[in-house]
Design a protein around this nucleic acid. Structure first.
Lengths: 154, 154
DNA sequence: GCATCTTCGCAACCAAATTGCGAAACCCCT
DNA sequence: AGGGGTTTCGCAATTTGGTTGCGAAGATGC
């Protein structure tokens, strides 16, 4: 459920989405408050859960994980147990960055990070299998990342 | 190209991916260094571009953007001009969180955040059109977000 | 227009970051 | 195995940023 934000809140959120480690004195200047009330608002936004967390974003190429692969998966069955088991497994696999249960054509969509195609093939053979409730996989390969942002429009 | 990281570097990166605003004195305790060399290592990781940036992650439901929609798009043509124009447009649209040029079945894959299905329909009618080089769109709707993480496995 | 509530900003204090430098650890070569 | 050189650590002093209490200002409602 959306929360009521005023203009200063939005400016704070936009600035912190852009730079999560912006120092409060700089943030205050940017949003037009003095540091104390600015920091209080940030704390409130955190406590309200609007700011969920702060993360360092790594350059995936530089840590040897330059490939994102998309996998559309169809499960062996549609019962709650199969789905729960599948979801648990995807939660546990560190290479799985995103996982959605889908309506319509496929049962789920995954984005998986790997070092290269070999790595992906091994990942698929080991994990995208009946063991985890998966009957069929269609892999889609990006040839280029045009945009990957964490910044929600406000 | 991957960069040579030692065990302390990996611990720093894992900790900062989890909490981008971890105070250095806490981080130092966690990785087993004193604060000065720990902070120096963080700075080096930033300068090397391994840590690309820090971001605040918002709760999308609480800012009224609780729906992620996936759009597979086919372009009107495959020439560089059409593709460049399309990529530019996707870069500019704040609702587009992810955009990949794909090999194989579709030409591109988008993840778009919106408030609701109405919002998505308006977005699609306004932007996923010939105006931006798009000939055909197939929308995939998640029914549940199982996993959305920014934490690369190290 | 007044009262009450919310938010701001100052100032004092505390904590964290920064930086220089000497020491320790590690690595390489003879 | 030892010595020399390079890299990294950690201490300490200084600087900067964060925290918190409180009075003032602004906003809202009656």
């Amino acid at each position: 459920m959306p929360v009521k934000l005023d203009d200063i809140d939005r400016r704070i959120l936009r600035a912190l989405q852009r730079d999560g480690r912006l120092q409060n004195v700089e943030l205050a200047k940017e949003v037009g408050l003095s540091p104390s009330p600015c920091l209080r608002r940030v704390k409130l936004l955190e406590e309200a859960g609007i700011i969920d967390r702060y993360v360092a974003v790594l350059n995936s190429a530089k840590v040897g994980l330059s490939l994102s692969m998309f996998a559309r998966v169809w499960l062996t069955a549609q019962d709650a147990e199969t789905i729960d088991h599948f979801m648990d497994a995807m939660q546990q696999l560190p290479q799985v960055m995103e996982c959605y249960i889908m309506l319509g054509e496929s049962d789920a969509l995954l984005r998986v990070v790997v070092a290269n195609l070999d790595d992906y093939r091994r990942f698929q053979a080991a994990h995208l299998t009946r063991k985890n409730g998966i009957q069929n996989v269609k892999t889609d390969v990006p040839s280029q990342i045009v945009k990957q942002t964490y910044t929600l429009p406000l």
